Simulated assay, not measured.
Amino acid sequence: MIALAPIAPDEYVRDVLPQSRTMWAGARTFDEYVAEFRAAAASPWGRRRFRTVGLRVDGALVASCKRYARVLRCGERSYEAAGIGAVFTPEALRGRGYATAMLGAFLDAERAAGTDVAYLFSDIRPAFYAGLGFVRLPSRTFTLRADALPNDRIEVAALDDDDAGAVRRVFDALDRRRPFAFARTPLDWGWQRLRARSREHAGDPVHLGVRRGRLLCAYVTGRRVPAADAFVLDEFAFARNDDAWLIAPLLRAAAGDLRKVQGWLPPAVARGALPRGAVRARSDATAMLIPLSPAFRAAWNACGGRPAPVDADPVWSTDHI
């Protein structure tokens, strides 16, 4: 018997994480990799928005993935979105079509449940997902010389957990102007806080902002990675258009004595605040989606299958799953 079924967290830790660690543990030890998974699954976000599922053949787990529940705004409407992450088949079972069968069953189940769109970020073989009907979205990186950024005199403040509400207000002020975006609910912000503490990526976290009086008016977040001689940007936002100029000197302050600033190309509403630099296609974490409901397919076709202008990307790196 072949069936798609949930995987309990303990089973996922026991049967999947020891094998997938070489692909996705990153800079974490195995114990850190497991602890972060357990913390995410047990969090309010995890209990409501996250689960692990797999394909079983005669009861044996032969392929697995993670499911993330998000809401995607496209135009004036919001749509239920299912994110797919960590698609994995044990090495001894590869080449038998198990991942294809699992994803086919996953998409069928989502259509039947009324989900509007499924999405993923492909680290390996985007062509495989294209064969299942996923559409590739613009996925690019930028690189700037830190010493070429403006060195305006601004009073930079280090941000911490006490600034979470202010960061959210600034992000929302910018994000609500985007025609295509993943909505961030309080649960999603909780997930972002968990990820900000993750040791998956090398480097030291940096969260900087500028205040006007007691109000935060702009911020940048990312990591200083001395081994790459770079500040790696996660996201930035500014409360008003008049505050967009603050982003470039904030990036310079975040880079410090490092030579480069790099990261994913930001969405259109933020792109103008980023100075021009070298842009290239990203070879990993390629954003892809597949319309599932007639309503979302019509909205997608109405925007010509292009969720962002040619000089911007549709998502932040912090949307990555």
Rank of each mutant, 00 (worst) to 15 (best):
R271C: 01
Y129A: 03
Y119P: 08
D175A: 15
A196L: 07
T286W: 06
R169L: 14
P267Y: 06
A298L: 12
L61D: 05
R38G: 05
R67S: 10
M102W: 15
V315L: 15
R111K: 12
A295Q: 09
R73K: 15
P186T: 09
G114L: 13
R195L: 13
D161G: 07
G213D: 01
A99H: 11
Y33A: 02
P90S: 04
P266Q: 02
A157K: 10
K66E: 14
R271V: 07
G190N: 03
S317Q: 10
V206L: 04
A39V: 07
L55K: 08
R211A: 05
A27Q: 10
V279E: 14
R276Q: 10
T100Y: 06
W24N: 01
D311I: 01
L265K: 05
A130F: 07
R297F: 09
Y129F: 14
G85T: 13
A164E: 12
P226Q: 02
V210D: 00
A42Q: 14
R282F: 07
R195Y: 08
D284A: 15
F88L: 08
L149R: 00
V53T: 11
A181C: 11
L144F: 01
P205T: 03
A278L: 15
A248Y: 01
R212A: 11
V232W: 07
G114I: 13
A270V: 10
L250D: 05
T52S: 11
A308N: 00
D147I: 09
R47T: 03
F121I: 10
S64H: 06
A101C: 14
F121Y: 15
R145C: 08
A164D: 09
A302E: 12
L72V: 10
R177W: 05
T29Y: 02
R47V: 05
A113F: 10
V62H: 00
T29R: 06
A158C: 06
D160W: 06
Y219W: 11
G133K: 08
V210Q: 00
L132C: 07
W45Q: 03
G83F: 08
V279A: 09
L149E: 00
Y79F: 15
A268F: 00
R212P: 00
A86P: 00
G190C: 02
A227Q: 03
R136I: 12
R73L: 12
L61F: 04
G165A: 15
S293I: 06
H320Q: 13
